[in-house]
C-alpha cells in the first residue's frame, strides 16, 4: 500500500507542536526476532497528534518508524529486560503484533501511557464538539441577556432604536440570504457548527484568522475590522431574530412612530 511518506515525514519534522517526546526502548524493527528479547534499542520518540514517530536520535531528520494510534489500546507490559518500565500498543487486527516499548522510569512510563491512550483523532474530535456546544450555549445565554436589555431600551424609545438598527447595521453588512445566526440556530448542536466551520459560514475569529494565516488564539490582536465583523454579525443575527419574533407587532410600531 502506498502512503504519501514524504509528506508524513515532513509533518513529523514540521514546527507544529509535539504532544509528547522522549527516549524509549523498542524491540521492533527490521531483523529483530518475532519475540522481543535482549535490551532492545533506544530511540527518540515523538508523538504528534495521532501519529507516533521514532528517530535514531533527538537530532534525527528522518523518521525510522510510524505507528498510527487509531483503534489501538495501550497497556502496561512485561519488559524482556529487567529494570525497564514497559508498555505495549496493541491493535485488534489479525496478524498485528503489539509494539513493545519501555521508558526509563515509572513517571515517564505513566506519562507515555496517558499521552498515547488519548492520542486518537476521535478523542480530539469529541473534546472539540463538546467545547463547540458549550460555546454555543454561552453565546445563547449572553444573547438572551442582551436581548432582554435591548427590549428595555426599545420600550423606552422605540422609533430611535429602530432607526439605529436599520441605518447603523443593515447597510454595513451583506449576509447570505439563508444566513443562520451563530450560536443561535434552532438546529444547534455540533453538527451544525461543524458544517459551519467547514463552509466558512461561522465567521468567527477562528475561521477568519485561519484563513488569513493569523493566530486563531488571540483574536484581540487582530485588526478592528475583523472583530467588528465578528461581533457585528451576532448583532445582526440578534436583530433578525428579534424582528421575526415581533413581526406581528411591527405594524403597531410603525403607527406609534408616526404619531
Amino acid at each position: 500500500m502506498k502512503l504519501n511518506e514524504r509528506s508524513v515525514a515532513h509533518y513529523a519534522l514540521s514546527d507544529s507542536p509535539a504532544d509528547h517526546t522522549g527516549f524509549l526502548r523498542t524491540w521492533g524493527g527490521p531483523g529483530t526476532p518475532p519475540t522481543p528479547s535482549g535490551t532492545g534499542r533506544r530511540c527518540w520518540f515523538v508523538l504528534k497528534g495521532n501519529l507516533l514517530f521514532s528517530f535514531e536520535s533527538r537530532e534525527g531528520r528522518a523518521p525510522l518508524s510510524l505507528v498510527v494510534l487509531e483503534g489501538c489500546t495501550v497497556e502496561l507490559a512485561e519488559a524482556p529486560a529487567p529494570e525497564e518500565f514497559a508498555f505495549a500498543i496493541c491493535f485488534d487486527a489479525p496478524g498485528v503484533r503489539p509494539h513493545l516499548l519501555a521508558a526509563d522510569g515509572p513517571v515517564a512510563q505513566e506519562a507515555w501511557v496517558k499521552a498515547l491512550s488519548r492520542a486518537s483523532f476521535g478523542y480530539m474530535r469529541l473534546v472539540v464538539r463538546e467545547l463547540e456546544s458549550q460555546l454555543q450555549e454561552a453565546r445563547r445565554s449572553l444573547a438572551l441577556q442582551r436581548h432582554s436589555s435591548c427590549k428595555a431600551v426599545a420600550n423606552r424609545c422605540k422609533p430611535q432604536a429602530l432607526d439605529y438598527w436599520s441605518l447603523g447595521l443593515e447597510n454595513g453588512h451583506s449576509l447570505p440570504r439563508d444566513y443562520s445566526p451563530v450560536g443561535l440556530g434552532e438546529e444547534g448542536g455540533s453538527r451544525w457548527a461543524g458544517r459551519a466551520l467547514a463552509e466558512g459560514v461561522l465567521q468567527g475569529p477562528a475561521n477568519l484568522l485561519l484563513g488569513s494565516g493569523q493566530s486563531p488564539v488571540s483574536p484581540e490582536t487582530s485588526c478592528f475590522s475583523t472583530l467588528h465583523e465578528w461581533y457585528g454579525q451576532e448583532i445582526v443575527a440578534l436583530r433578525r431574530r428579534w424582528q421575526q419574533r415581533t413581526q406581528g407587532s411591527q405594524a403597531e410600531y410603525g403607527e406609534q412612530a408616526e404619531q
Binding site: 500500500m1 502512503l3 511518506e5 508524513v8 515525514a9 521492533g28 524493527g29 527490521p30 528522518a62 523518521p63 525510522l64 518508524s65 510510524l66 505507528v67 498510527v68 487509531e70 483503534g71 489501538c72 491493535f91 485488534d92 487486527a93 489479525p94 496478524g95 498485528v96
Partner: peptide, 11 residues
C-alpha cells in the same frame, strides 16, 4: 520509514 501495512489496512 517503517510502518505496518496491516495497521493501516485495519484503519
Amino acid at each position: 520509514m517503517r510502518y505496518n501495512e496491516k495497521e493501516l489496512q485495519a484503519l
